[in-house]
Amino acid sequence: MMKYVISLIIGMLVGIAALVLMLYFNPLTSQNKLSPLSVTDNDVITLHYSAVAQDSLIYTNDGESQVDPHPIKVLQLWEPAIRLTRAMATVLLDSRGQTAGIGIKFSSDSESSNILDGAAIVDSVWHIYLPGRGSLFIGQSENYWSYLRKVVIPAYRSSGDNWRGTWYGNITSGPGALGTARVVGGSGDFSGIDTEAVEALSAKAYSVELGPVAIDGELLIEIPRRGEPDNAATEESIGSLRIDPPDEPSYSL
């Protein structure tokens, strides 16, 4: 009887190992490296940033994650509701490497993550201000499965606990049907636009101890020509809700 139980347990361990390998090497979950915006006729704004925490203006998380907050004294997001959230403010560069503006990114682990589907989902938003041009909001779902598979796990498997190489991939996976992010313009040249964007990462080095060591991010934002349908869709009236004016001292921020 005992030998049957032992063989059953060994079989279960083999089965679980086989499942892990199947998920890890599943070719159906490979990431598309071609940007959906590469075939657009519209103008595309390209913004670059460093995805390394130490290169940002500030980066903060729960303080217990692999990547240390930067600067060291920054307030940490330790409260239960924001423990799985990261906040970053960074300088954005244009395609020529010139300073273009500031970008603030909030990202949170998503409950829609599903390892069976190869979906390591992060819900994120960008708040971007480009002086002289205007402001933008980008809302997206990102899928880091390919990044985990090609960069992070190989770093853990490496005897030196690091990964060096070249990896490039789109991380935006929605909400657009083609795996694009939703972009809404707030002011300036971008006022009223409702368009799409794609965020990509270009990784060259990753350390198990420090996290990303040499990783650049890229935002490709499609700018529709004025008068095209994308613009018309944003001209919606705001509802008739009112808030009674309170008697308070003037705002002094």
């Binding site: 063989s7 060994i10 279960m12 361990l13 089965g15 998503s110 993550s113 390892i115 069976l116």
Partner: peptide
Amino acid sequence: SFIAGILLGVALGVAALYYVPAVD
């Protein structure tokens, strides 16, 4: 019983990944 264990292991793994949320 070894083959049954493999199938059971795969089934348990899939069930765990399906029903236990990766992020809460």
